[in-house]
């Protein structure tokens, strides 16, 4: 059962866990998602991080965190999480720490490592039933190194490595489906532009144990080419156009937590960002139509299975 969430934004925590003064871009959508997660998980969290933009958060001597942080090799965050979890379990077993001192182990990684070189370590950790929460902030590229295309870059997007007239030729890898295929405890897509949905899913995940993923669309002004002020509007557009379905996998079933109605044309989303500007040119009319088709088909299937 999916528990009901808070009904109003004012019910969200108004005390915040992370300190200000982070070195991330003004308007970073990845930071926005992490803030919500930290606000609800609290200080008793160990973050295990793979290289990416958010690694810069904890660069000695500066850190916004009040709890612990472990930086691992880019492919190995879930393996690092296993070590931390095992260590905590041993201490608990021995009675060296009490249950009130137990910590939640949170992997924090970008789409590049989560859907690329970190996938094998992730898959193995899920196989082993590791009790951990995984937050993947998806800015759809290798943001920290200058927004090269990653496995999560959507078709048509311009990146530092996809500069052709039609943008990125590949398709966005479906990390939600890959996780769900492992039959883990919980998988959900979220975005900070939908704070109530996000809060409910964080709390659902927090109250479960086993492998759990929160996959957050993370609008990125620097990599996506838009004014930082537009970040929340763009996150919302991703949901309203149906390009970022909000859904969750619990007890072996996928449920959509929000069906966009009316569903806006994908063009509206593309028009909001420099990385898609070329899609609106007359010569890319067919590509644009194909992208709309793809989205329509997705939602048609959702309806058929409802």
């Amino acid at each position: 059962m999916i528990p009901p969430g808070r009904q109003h934004l004012r019910e969200l925590p108004d005390r915040h866990c992370l300190a200000a003064g982070t070195p991330l871009c003004a308007g970073c959508g990845g930071l926005a998602a992490l803030q919500a997660v930290c606000d609800l998980l609290g200080e008793k969290t160990v973050i295990v991080n793979a290289a990416g933009c958010l690694t810069l958060l904890a660069a000695y001597p500066s850190t916004p965190f009040r709890g612990s942080w472990l930086y691992t090799a880019m492919a190995s965050a879930p393996a690092g999480a296993q070590g931390v979890r095992d260590g905590l379990d041993i201490l608990l077993d021995k009675g060296a720490i009490g249950t009130e001192e137990n910590l939640e182990v949170l992997v924090l990684a970008g789409d590049g490592s989560s859907g690329g070189m970190g996938l094998s370590a992730t898959s193995a950790a899920i196989d082993r039933g590791l009790d951990f929460l995984y937050l993947c902030y998806d800015n759809e590229g290798y943001g920290n190194t200058g927004q090269q295309a990653s496995a999560a870059t959507p078709r048509g997007a311009r990146t530092a490595t996809s500069r052709g007239p039609q943008g990125h030729p590949g398709a966005k890898k479906d990390l939600f489906a890959i996780w769900a295929a492992h039959r883990p405890r919980y998988v959900a897509t979220v975005t900070a532009a939908e704070p109530l949905d996000l809060a409910r899913k964080i709390e659902t995940a927090r109250n479960l144990s086993g492998p759990r993923l929160l996959l957050a669309l993370a609008p990125c002004p620097t990599g996506w080419g838009y004014e930082p002020a537009e970040g929340v509007a763009i996150g919302r557009l991703a949901v309203q156009t149906g390009l970022w379905p909000l859904k969750e996998y619990v007890d072996g079933r996928v449920q959509h937590s929000k069906i966009p109605q009316p569903r806006l044309p994908v063009r509206d989303y593309f028009a909001s960002q420099g990385r898609f500007a070329h899609l609106l040119r007359p010569e890319n009319e067919q590509l644009l139509a194909a992208l709309q088709d793809e989205t329509d088909r997705y939602w048609q299937e959702v309806e058929e299975h409802a």
């Binding site: 992370l18 300190a19 200000a20 003064g21 982070t22 070195p23 003004a26 958060l57 000695y60 001597p61 500066s62 850190t63 916004p64 965190f65 009040r66 709890g67």
Partner: peptide, 18 residues
């Protein structure tokens, strides 16, 4: 370095970025 101090980022005046 032994890093035990929490929330030290407060000391960065990111307001100067504006």
């Amino acid at each position: 370095p032994a890093i035990h101090a929490a929330a030290t980022s407060e000391l960065s005046q990111t307001g100067l970025w504006r």
